[in-house]
């Protein structure tokens, strides 16, 4: 974008075209219907700015047959609202990257999806989130079973203080996924292989996991997640503690996993978002500003805040 200082003018026609396509979809503004009744011709996106932050999300929030469907999701930590009415669908077999400056709510959003915010005292989530059509905040649903369907990989590699084998076997053991030791061995093998770690650790499965390098530990954490056979994998800045080579390996792995899983990845690195994701959501000050195909967001951002962020003007 930097080569077009007058970006808004250059983008004018393209923007109109996108609007035309998006406007035909009646579901697009489920979340904000009451907030901004103005029929948006979207000639001037900046019109909807409220103190710099728009009330509505720019771009296509819904998808066909979503794995996750979030409607009006807000999160409060005590009196502080960390997430404002986010409406977003998450597609299957696709990487959704959540980008935005620190404290913009992208991690908070991610942690809503497997109810990890429940572990924080004083956290409150409103709105609805469905996983395969079922409300995940339904009181009658078992939270542990829910989380088993949703894998999570964290910012820092955090293997348990156990052997490599036991780390991968942890989930299958607590959920009693396998009946015999041979089955468990098999599952550990497949998980480690899918995480691209098998060849590096096959000779030292009983060695402590903390002895692995950072990149290996992170892939072990991914293997540990895969062993529970989740439907979705949430990744909270999975590469931020890794060196460039380890990062490249994890990114390759994410690319492979995309064939079977829906992946939501929070990242600080826009290059990473551009490299591995197919869809990108830009969060700012607790709001979902813009969501679109990754190519689109990075080459032709619709919202000025998105453009400012991806061109490095703030954040």
């Amino acid at each position: 974008m930097t080569e077009f200082p007058g970006g808004s003018i250059v983008h004018g026609p393209r923007r109109a075209e996108v609007n035309g396509a998006g406007g035909s979809d009646g579901r697009r503004r489920l979340g904000e219907a009451g907030l901004n009744a103005k029929p948006s011709g979207r000639m001037h996106v900046a019109d909807s700015l409220e103190g710099g932050v728009p009330a509505r999300t720019v771009g296509e929030v819904s998808v066909e047959d979503p794995v996750f469907s979030c409607r009006d999701v807000s999160v409060f930590y005590g009196a502080k609202q960390a997430l404002h009415s986010v409406t977003l669908d998450i597609a299957r077999r696709q990487v959704l990257a959540a980008i935005g400056p620190s404290g913009c709510g992208k991690s908070t959003f991610l942690r809503c999806l497997n109810r990890m915010n429940d572990t924080i005292p004083g956290a409150r989530v409103t709105g609805t989130i469905t996983l395969d059509g079922q409300d995940i905040y339904d009181k009658s649903k078992d939270i542990a079973q829910l989380r088993a369907r949703i894998g999570m990989v964290f910012q820092k590699p955090n293997p348990f203080h156990k052997s490599i084998y036991d780390n991968v076997a942890y989930g299958p053991r607590i959920h009693k996924l396998t009946r015999t030791r041979a089955d468990l061995d098999e599952l550990v093998f497949t998980s480690l292989s899918r995480a691209g770690l098998w060849n590096e650790v096959k000779d030292r499965l009983s060695a402590p996991a903390v002895g692995l390098s950072g990149g290996q530990q992170q892939r072990l954490c991914i293997a540990r997640t895969l062993a529970v056979q989740p439907e979705v994998i949430l990744m909270d800045e999975p590469c931020s503690a890794l060196d460039p080579i380890a990062t490249a390996r994890v990114e390759d792995l994410i690319e492979e996993l995309r064939a079977s899983y829906a992946i939501v990845m929070v990242t600080h690195s826009m290059q990473q978002a551009a490299r591995v994701s197919q869809r990108t959501a830009f969060f700012y000050m607790g709001k979902l500003i813009e969501v679109s195909d990754t190519d689109h967001v990075f080459t032709n951002p619709q919202h000025r805040l998105t453009e400012d962020y991806i061109t490095g003007r703030f954040g």
Binding site: M116, T119, Q145, R147, A148, F154, F160, Y170, C221, V228
Partner: peptide
């Protein structure tokens, strides 16, 4: 560390399992 507990919760561990298999060790 919360991270350690959360990773066990993330794998679908119950509170009891987190305490017994993560916190206590």
């Amino acid at each position: 560390p919360d991270l350690l507990k959360e990773s066990a919760y993330g794998l679908g561990a119950t509170t009891w399992e987190v305490i017994w298999r993560v916190v206590v060790p």
